[in-house]
Amino acid sequence: MARTLLLRLAVALLAALTAALGGQARADIVRLAVASNFAEPMQTLAEAFSAGTGHTLIISNGSTGRLYAQIVNGAPFDVFLAADTVRPARLVEDGLAVAGSAQTYATGRLALMEPGDATAGTPSPLQRLQSGDYRRLALASPDLAPYGAAAHQVLAHLDLQTASASRQVFGENIGQTYAFVATGNADLGFVALSQIRHPGSAPAGRYDLIPAGWHDPIRQDAVLLERSNDNEAARAFLDFLALPEARDIIAAHGYEAPE
């Protein structure tokens, strides 16, 4: 008898606790699933958005593929900022995202980066890629990360896929790929321009911008998830992304902001 009572008490306590936490979450908190390449500008955007509206943004970074898989399995996100247009569209098809809410917030650019300080007169990263003068070439996993798929297209465009195959190493997302290069373990890597170009400071390492014509445009779509259809703060954030203030921030990080 006493044990049943204790059990009931514990269940009631747990329910009260989760209700308190959940209730707080509904009000004006927006949970964002953000593709890793956009992690840096997202920080600045979040500060600007929160300062203007008082809403709180909670950001989870990962590869677009991983975040998509998490959303399909019921992850509690309100807005998904993907690195492609395919997965947001698929979420709409599956009824997991609000139809008509998908919008392109940025078009990404790929960069080929090498670690350390540039030495004047030495071959550029792109020249090194073409002459095979590198030990390890880091790219994001093409199945999971759109920047990895774009890097694959660049290698195919340059007819270097076979030559580089045995030296490719894969980051689970573009953030891990960047870490492979930044720590010097890979001496060449395809990263997002946004990871190198920080407004107000020098780029971290030498890089070559990959011509946009060498791969399909990396159009990045944001989408409102179905479970948050009535979340006004989430809708406000999506509207904010299209405002000049947000577009300036996005452009300053090395993206082409949409027209």
């Binding site: 670690p115 492979f180 010097g184 373990n185 001496d187």
Partner: peptide
């Protein structure tokens, strides 16, 4: 380990 394995470090 990533820091240690880097070819610029002593061990790496």
């Amino acid at each position: 380990l990533l820091i240690l394995f880097n070819p610029g470090s002593a061990i790496g």
